[in-house]
């Protein structure tokens, strides 16, 4: 059902309209350690422009760590990440936007959060009012624009967080479980927003535990377990016949050992 609602629109608008900027992003043998523990071990994969990649894997697999590394919030201990073949730069970092697993909203109104983002992203002053109205409308938050962002419901916060990321007009949009805890309707709204982001030329990376959602949206799947890439495949291949026992167990809802 949701397939019918979101997928066609997304597919129709999927081709990118802009040069790819920071893409493709390549992780090459990236390791990340904290204290003695190796949290990410020799992780390699590529994010290709215009293809929606989902990262899947059990809790604690290292999915969020991957996103933080790609956003440039953390540095790999080993290996490297290249952005359109170059290392990360400040300009490059601004071409990437993250929607965190727990949205961090400023202690301001809904519109105050968006104004802040537009200013930080260097949107020309005269373009801001129109963008503000549009982003509010996209998020379905026009009616609560002046309410404190902190009192919004979880779904509303997620929507605000996503349109705030859209304000960056990013080349690469990293979404960390944007629909966890949301009801089906809110989930659909967010999936629509993801479609909109793609239509505007963003390449999306989506971390999700929702297998149905991954089936609906993904072009590529990266399956992580205990800090290692177990599988990297086209979505159809992955869901039809996972190559590893771990992925099969995960998809079947069994405990991974």
């Amino acid at each position: 059902m949701s397939d019918a609602l979101t997928t066609p629109a997304r597919r129709a608008l999927a081709p990118t309209k802009r040069p790819a900027g920071v893409l493709p992003v390549a992780l090459e043998a990236v390791s990340y350690r904290a204290d003695a523990a190796t949290l990410l071990d020799q992780v390699s994969f590529r994010l290709r422009p215009g293809r929606l990649t989902t990262i899947m894997g059990p809790n604690g697999a290292g999915k969020t760590l991957c996103l933080r590394l790609i956003q440039g919030l953390l540095r790999p201990d080993d290996g490297q990440i290249t952005y359109a073949t170059a290392p990360i730069s400040d300009a490059g970092r601004r071409r990437i936007a993250t929607v965190f697993q727990r949205p961090v909203l400023l202690r301001r109104s809904v519109i105050g959060n968006l104004r802040h983002a537009l200013r930080v992203y260097g949107i020309p002053r005269r373009d801001r009012p129109a963008m503000l109205a549009e982003l509010l409308q996209l998020a379905g938050l026009s009616d609560v624009a002046h309410r404190s962002a902190r009192v919004l419901s979880a779904g509303e916060q997620q929507r605000l967080s996503i349109v705030r990321a859209l304000a960056a007009e990013p080349d690469l949009l990293l979404l960390d479980e944007p629909t966890a805890n949301l009801d089906p309707y809110a989930t659909r709204l967010i999936e629509t927003l993801i479609g909109t982001a793609e239509a505007r030329g963003a390449t999306v990376v989506l971390v999700t535990h929702d297998v149905g959602q991954a089936r609906r949206l993904a072009d590529d799947v990266i399956f992580l377990n205990r800090g290692r890439v177990m599988e990297q495949a086209a979505a159809s291949d992955f869901f039809d016949g996972p190559a590893t026992d771990a992925a099969a167990a995960y998809l079947a809802g069994r405990l991974l050992l």
């Binding site: 933080r68 956003q71 440039g72 919030l73 400040d90 970092r93 601004r94 990437i96 936007a97 993250t98 965190f100 961090v104 400023l106 202690r107 301001r108 802040h116 983002a117 930080v120 992203y121 960056a168």
Partner: peptide
């Protein structure tokens, strides 16, 4: 503590982050 990753992900350097923090 709360804002750090969000502000850095938006490409804000220390100066800009201070202004946001002072204001909030």
């Amino acid at each position: 503590q709360e804002y750090d990753e969000q502000l850095r992900s938006m490409g804000l350097r220390t100066g800009g982050a201070v202004m946001t923090l002072l204001y909030d």
